[in-house]
Every structure is written in structure tokens, then in C-alpha cells.
Design a protein around this nucleic acid. Sequence first.
DNA 1: TAGATTGTTAATCGATTAACAATC
DNA 2: TAGATTGTTAATCGATTAACAATC
Lengths: 228, 228
Amino acid sequence: MAKSVQKKTKRDAAKSTGVSPMVIRRLPRYFRYLRELIRNGKLRISSGELSEMMHVTASQIRQDLNCFGGFGQQGYGYNVNYLYAKISELLGVGEGYHAIVIGMGNLGKALARNPMFEKRGVDIVGMFDISPAVIGEKVGDGVVLPLSELENFCLDHTVDIAVLTLPKEAIESVVERLIPLGITGLWNFTGKELDHLPPDMLVENVHIGDSLMTLCFEMRCREKGEKQ
Amino acid sequence: MAKSVQKKTKRDAAKSTGVSPMVIRRLPRYFRYLRELIRNGKLRISSGELSEMMHVTASQIRQDLNCFGGFGQQGYGYNVNYLYAKISELLGVGEGYHAIVIGMGNLGKALARNPMFEKRGVDIVGMFDISPAVIGEKVGDGVVLPLSELENFCLDHTVDIAVLTLPKEAIESVVERLIPLGITGLWNFTGKELDHLPPDMLVENVHIGDSLMTLCFEMRCREKGEKQ
DNA sequence: TAGATTGTTAATCGATTAACAATC
DNA sequence: TAGATTGTTAATCGATTAACAATC
């Protein structure tokens, strides 16, 4: 009957950022798999079953989920919808974060048109560039504004996150401007490490190329292995 | 005088994939920082100096680099150019890998136009799609071909890597076709986990959205912290 | 109740850091 | 040579897995 268990354990704490970075990095993956389970109409799942799907140990799943309190039920497993709701909550889906994209080159446009933001409850409310060639262009369901409008725009709208897809040369000056505008999350694709930020400014750096190099490393290892 | 040290240590082994995944994941980061050091004309660097730049411990740097043999020199540090060459070699830069991009939507185009491939020694030799709207279009310095040409193309060219930026519904059938064509590296942006692949097929999955969610998680943690 | 499966503790494993002898 | 800094071993720390009692 799977009544949702709300009991708080001692470790409910996991206060603020007291959760292991390894666990945090795995949360989005749980989110994705749960989303798929829901799409497939699955109502309950055990750590064992999920572990097979995800190719991790059942032990790790139980350990991970327990960092945030008891989401399951002995003898039953996990209620898929309840677990999804809990993890979504942890990840701030439904928090209604508002984002702007700065730099509408190929990558900026690709991201802005990507359904990913919507799926994750992040709303793109504005897009900016300095090039007259793209200003005024419609991308997704918005229009690219001149970067000079940044301040005015942020006075009129709540903006939490800035997606930085501009050339790395321009990033420092833009981040300077973002700080007083109340933006506290930077999703940084420029490849430039951002230093000396205010303590309440969170940054997530993305280096897509690193992933390609990891693949190349493995390909090369295999080749070397074959040659011997 | 920094003569390059070639001595092989016992651990030179690090045979094929015998290197810790954590170390492997850090290699591209060393690559990036060394590239920058070279651009700035720096000729030598100590683990201590590099550790400050990269915000990691000097101990970790020495430990990491030593997985692959002695790249430094006591009392001197590391020769930047030599170290860069060695790490590039490990990562297969200069190996001249050839890649095709399958699925020329926004993301496919953004990647194909990205200087990242060139910087990392990977050459995009072909681009494919099924939509007449993009077939024939010039992207970067190539032209999008119809997916039906895939087999013919791969007979005429050496292709090592396929960049998968097509809709996840189409991926299974495409990967089936890639296997007999000699492609052994998949860079998978579809979000669909690939199972049941031949053992010599390497896959690197990219989930950009996971990084956004990590940022949102942290933002939410901070908010919760502030409220208390 | 009996069976199943969680929550949680304890054991293992791996990764990071500290320390220092080797050596340039 | 003396000073610097690596390579490498040993100590610490954290993360994963195994095991099982709690309990639905």
C-alpha cells in the first residue's frame, strides 16, 4: 500500500552542503531514471531493481537516498512518484529558477532551444548579445536583446542564473555587471575559471571538451594495449 | 637546464586502463592549464606553483603525473612544453582521430563549429542528418550529407569517432549501423544509455543537464541554509 | 505471519594528503 | 655544495560495499 514515509532520521541534517559531492553528482542521474520509470508507468521500485537498470550497487542507492532521509519503505521498496518528487525537490525543480543566456552564438542558441531547461524547471527569461547580427533574432520563444539592456532587464525581472556562453575574453566584465544584479548562479561554458567572486555567487563550470578527451584517452589506451 | 627526464619507473605500467578513473578525469584539466601556461610563455613550473593555479594540492599533481612516469626533475620542477607534450600524447592529441557528427540540429551544429575539436586534434570529416532542410547545408567547413550516405562515406574515409547529437529515438538503429563500419568511439549526447555494445566500442555519455541540476541543488541548499 | 526490502552500521576499498629520502 | 623540488612511501581520509537488524 506504500504509504509515503515521512519519518526524519538523525541524518536528516545533511545540512546545507553537508552532503558528499559524489552523492550530489549522482542525484541528477537518479532524477533521469525516475523520470523514465514514470514515463513507463512504473509505480514502485526496489533498490535492487534500480541498481540493475543503473549499473550501480543497490547498497549505494540506499546509502545515497538515505543522506536525505528515509524515502523508502521496508519490504516494499520505493514509491516511484514519491521518490521522484523528493529528488526533484532536492534539485530545486519547481523552485522556478529564472535564467538568462549571455552570448547567443551557436552554443547559446543550442542551449536556449534545448528542452532541458524546461524539463528541469528552469525558465529562460532573457537572452543577450552584443552583435547586431543576432540582436532582435527570435530564438526559442524569446528575442535576443542587446547586452546594454542587461541592467534594465534585471531590474524588471527576477533573474537567478546566468548561462555564460560568450567568448572568454568578455566574461570578466560581464560577471562584474552580474554581481550587483542579484544573480547568484553562473553556468559557465567559457572555459575561463572565475576567481574572486563574492561568497554567495555559485559557479558551475562546464568543459565539454574534457569529456571528448576522456574518450580519446581510452581509445588510445586500447590501441596501445592491442599493439602489445 | 631541465633536460627532459625519460626514465621509466616501475609504475610505468599503468597498462591500458590500469589508471584510476579519478586521475583520468583530471588529465584534460592539466592539458588545459598547460596550454595556457604555454600561451603565456612560461617554460617551467613546480607542482607547488601549479597547485595554486589549479586549486588542488601539489601532492595530488605529483601523484597524478607519476602514474605515467617521471615527467619532472628534482630541484627543477616540470618543463612546461615537455609536460604538455606528454599529456597530449596520453590524451591522443596528435593521434589524428577522425570524427563524424550524426544529427545536425542546434547542438550538432554548435559542436561542429566549435574550435574544441581542432584544439584537441580531432578532425570532423563528415556530418549527417536525415532532414532535407539541413542536408546540403554548409556547417563549419563541411557540408551536411544525407544519413543514407553513411556506409559509403565510411568505406571511403577512416572514421574513429561518432558524435551522436540525434534524437534519442533514432539512436539504436544508427548505432547498429555504426558498429560494422569500424567506428569504435561514441560521444553520446542523446541522453539514452547504450547497452549491449561490442566490447571494443567505447562510449562517453554527456549529460549537460546534470551540471545545471548540480548548480540548482547548490542554490537551493544555500537558500535553505539562509532561511534557518 | 513470513517474505521482502529498507535503513544503518561495520568492513573494505580507493583516493588524497603528508612526509621525506632521492637527486638534480 | 646547498637549495629546491621531485618521486614515492606511509598515513589519513572519504566513499563504496557488505551485512544484517529493523520493520513494513
